[in-house]
Amino acid sequence: MSPGVPVLLCPPALRAGPEPADGRHTPIPTGHHLGLRDNPDQDSQDTRIALEAPLDSDEERFWRALTRVVAALPKALDDDLSKATGLTLSEYTVLMRLSEADGGKLRIGDLASSAALSLSRISRMVNSLQARGWMGKRRHDHDARGWVTSLTDEGLRRRESAYPALLLSARRRVVDHVDCGAAAMTVHQIRRIASVLE
């Protein structure tokens, strides 16, 4: 894996209760427990169908395991990276996205989307990284209301120097626990999920 390959970004955290110790299937909550209205006119057809088809045992074990990973992994990677390099995972992701962009430049809205950050948060982060000399920011040539961000040489060096720490964390936290024989299929399945979410 080279420094140009994206490594484990930051999706929103989901939380789920513990998996039943005895492995028995616990049906997915009913509409009442989900807070849905009793009036069927308020519920979509898809929601009604979903409630009539609860997850089976294997599907629920997969779902619970996935939500545990989604909840815990970003914080673990962020902690590892911060301790080793002083960069947060979000800061590293912003520098990485710019380093991979054509000409090392992105409109601020595109940078926010690619780094999975809100516009308000990306604006604060860009200002912080600019103050450290790692990024530049200028008005868009054809849109006076828009901003274009760029990566400085120092920012690129900072990103490259942090990459080994993130790679070590990614291996220790995730990759070394994946069966090599199942890795290709796992990538395919995760990409299918990501394509639905993006």
Results as ranks from 00 to 15, higher is better:
residue 48 R to P: 02
residue 49 I to P: 01
residue 52 E to K: 15
residue 52 E to C: 07
residue 53 A to E: 14
residue 54 P to Q: 10
residue 55 L to T: 04
residue 57 S to C: 07
residue 58 D to A: 13
residue 58 D to F: 04
residue 58 D to Q: 13
residue 60 E to R: 09
residue 60 E to I: 09
residue 60 E to P: 04
residue 61 R to N: 06
residue 62 F to Y: 10
residue 64 R to W: 07
residue 66 L to A: 15
residue 66 L to N: 10
residue 70 V to L: 10
residue 71 A to Q: 08
residue 71 A to P: 00
residue 72 A to R: 06
residue 72 A to S: 15
residue 75 K to L: 09
residue 75 K to F: 10
residue 76 A to R: 10
residue 76 A to H: 12
residue 78 D to R: 02
residue 79 D to P: 01
residue 79 D to A: 12
residue 80 D to W: 13
residue 81 L to A: 03
residue 81 L to N: 03
residue 81 L to R: 01
residue 82 S to M: 09
residue 83 K to F: 07
residue 86 G to E: 06
residue 87 L to S: 02
residue 87 L to R: 03
residue 90 S to M: 01
residue 90 S to H: 09
residue 91 E to H: 08
residue 92 Y to I: 00
residue 92 Y to G: 00
residue 93 T to N: 08
residue 94 V to L: 11
residue 94 V to F: 03
residue 94 V to C: 02
residue 95 L to I: 02
residue 95 L to M: 07
residue 96 M to E: 15
residue 97 R to N: 09
residue 97 R to E: 12
residue 99 S to A: 15
residue 101 A to F: 07
residue 103 G to K: 05
residue 105 K to T: 15
residue 106 L to N: 00
residue 106 L to G: 00
residue 108 I to D: 05
residue 108 I to A: 13
residue 109 G to A: 08
residue 111 L to S: 00
residue 113 S to Y: 10
residue 113 S to P: 00
residue 117 L to K: 05
residue 119 L to I: 14
residue 120 S to E: 11
residue 122 I to N: 05
residue 123 S to Y: 01
residue 124 R to Q: 14
residue 126 V to W: 02
residue 126 V to M: 08
residue 128 S to E: 15
residue 128 S to W: 05
residue 129 L to H: 01
residue 130 Q to P: 03
residue 130 Q to K: 15
residue 131 A to R: 15
residue 132 R to N: 14
residue 134 W to V: 02
residue 134 W to H: 13
residue 135 M to Y: 04
residue 136 G to P: 02
residue 137 K to N: 11
residue 137 K to W: 06
residue 137 K to C: 15
residue 138 R to A: 14
residue 139 R to L: 12
residue 141 D to T: 14
residue 143 D to C: 06
residue 143 D to K: 11
residue 143 D to Y: 13
residue 146 G to E: 14
residue 148 V to C: 11
residue 150 S to P: 04
residue 151 L to D: 00
residue 151 L to Q: 00
residue 151 L to W: 02
residue 153 D to L: 04
residue 155 G to N: 03
residue 156 L to E: 13
residue 156 L to M: 04
residue 156 L to W: 07
residue 157 R to I: 05
residue 157 R to E: 15
residue 158 R to L: 10
residue 159 R to P: 01
residue 159 R to Y: 13
residue 159 R to H: 14
residue 159 R to T: 02
residue 160 E to M: 12
residue 161 S to R: 15
residue 162 A to S: 05
residue 162 A to M: 04
residue 162 A to F: 01
residue 163 Y to C: 07
residue 164 P to V: 03
residue 165 A to E: 03
residue 166 L to A: 01
residue 167 L to G: 04
residue 167 L to E: 06
